[in-house]
Design a protein around this nucleic acid. Structure first.
Length: 394
RNA sequence: GGGUCGGUGCCCGAGCGGCCAAUGGGAUCUGGCUGUAAACCAGACGGCUUUGCCUACGGGGGUUCAAAUCCCUCCCGGCCCA
């Protein structure tokens, strides 16, 4: 199990041991392990961060185990605060059901559609009674919750902690009970929630699940964790060119971090790859292209990856115009400022003027910075380093 | 319920009668440098019919020549105590 990590070695050993036993039992009884992970539908897209656990699920799947993806339609209405030192906006049931559907679909970029159960935890959690909830809650102490770093921090800062937040771990924990899970995967900060599940399972007379946690993926800016709301993500279903471009814009250091987490490369290959880059035997840019190509081919196939790479090299390295330039019809003559708004290059005329004065606009390969310029004929407009627009008469 | 602090631009936050479309940081955009990197440097960052005007500092009302800043009121929230 390369890539899994825990807060302390003791726990890691215990979990390793537990997993080994489970696998042995499973082999004896010829019963596949029930393995699951959950994602709250807090944003419409799954991204490379999710791919870490998804790929691990896929491995289990390929070994014949029973894989379930839980979409946290109910848990999202609480909002998990495990990864942050503040509250989180709660989702309404309407928002979550919409996202739930697309999550299921996006999972299949990695998982085998035929063999995967995609379920929504609202289906069973919403049926719990208050009596049930009290029963669940009685398995934990307030101190156990307050001992968590992020709660502690908030108390020290006199920042609010919602009472409902405590239910998050309970509900996620009950998912494990409901599924009778053998193994639960998650990012490192999920350890508390996963162990809460294991504890509840024991309370319900089930063997506690094995927790497997994985490092958090930093986003494209290389600092904060990848997330949709921070806008630093690479979506699993994004267009090949977008994926390729975003991966190439990542810093060398971030690329190195990503290698072991998001690729399908064997561990030894990753080590070797890193070593080559560090020794200067492999140029970081070439390395990054290989990474980008690999990832795009995972989600869109090799051919799309080839095309994305070619498109990238053409537009960014050779300065050529891409094939898929957006074309807009206008009526000539039209002031350049208005034209920039019409083609969507700027949100307002003021913004368009700013782009012009900043020297960002090229019309037919000529830089134009006068805001009284006028477009009289079909033109190719380049805005900034990578946005192209074609204007034709209507 | 009592006390107390607060609600400012995408986010965080400073301002506490005029010099405020509002300091600073983050995010974002643009330019420079580069390997389309990152880091770094520079600029921009409400809108418009752009030497000016309009809209904005929780909502409404008021004082004033002038209010994000003072007063009244309403709404919303934090913390502490009960």
């Amino acid at each position: 199990m390369h890539g899994s990590e825990f807060g302390d070695d003791q726990l890691k050993r215990a979990m390793g041991e537990r997993l080994r036993k489970r696998l042995e039992q499973a082999a004896e009884k010829q019963r596949p392990l029930r393995v699951y992970t959950g994602y709250d539908p807090s944003a419409p897209d799954l991204h490379l961060g999710h791919s870490i656990t998804l790929r691990k699920l896929r491995q289990f799947q390929d070994l014949g185990h029973d894989v379930t993806v839980v979409v946290g339609t109910m848990t999202a209405t609480i909002g998990d605060t495990s990864d942050r030192a503040s509250g989180r906006p709660r989702k309404t049931p309407t928002e979550t059901t919409a996202a739930a559907q697309s999550y299921g679909e996006q999972c299949f970029t990695i998982l085998d559609r035929e063999k995967t159960h995609v379920v929504a935890n609202g289906d069973w959690l919403s049926g719990l009674t208050l009596t049930d909830a009290l029963e669940l809650a009685s398995n934990f102490t307030v101190q156990q919750f307050l001992a968590r770093d992020n709660y502690r921090l908030r108390i020290d800062r006199s920042e609010p902690i919602g009472l409902h937040e405590f239910f998050y771990a309970l509900l996620q924990g009950f998912d494990a009970v409901h599924l009778e899970a053998d193994v639960q995967l998650g990012a490192t900060e999920q350890l508390f929630n996963i162990l809460a599940g294991a504890k509840l399972q024991e309370a319900f007379g089930q063997p506690p699940c094995v927790a497997l946690t994985f490092p958090i993926l930093v986003g494209t800016n290389g600092v904060e964790r990848m997330s949709k709301s921070r806008g630093n993500y690479v979506g699993l279903t994004e267009a090949p060119n977008e994926q390729f471009g975003k991966i190439m814009s990542v810093s060398d250091e971030t690329m190195i971090q990503w290698l072991g987490l998001v690729t399908n490369w064997p561990h030894d290959d990753v080590v070797a790859f890193r070593y080559q880059v560090e020794r200067g035997e492999l140029h970081p840019m070439v390395a990054k292209k290989q990474l980008a190509h690999h990832l795009v081919s995972l989600y869109h196939g090799v051919r799309a990856a080839d095309e994305a790479q070619a498109a990238f090299e053409n537009t960014h390295q050779r300065g050529l115009v891409p094939d898929d330039v957006v074309q807009t019809s206008i009526t000539f003559p039209l002031g350049l400022v208005d034209a920039l708004v019409a083609i969507g290059a700027a949100n307002s005329k003021s913004a368009a003027r700013r782009l012009l004065s900043g020297g960002a606009v090229m019309v037919n390969d000529v830089k134009v910075d006068a805001d009284d310029a006028v477009i009289n004929s079909p033109s190719l407009i380049k805005v900034g380093p990578r946005r192209f627009f074609r204007i034709v008469g209507s």
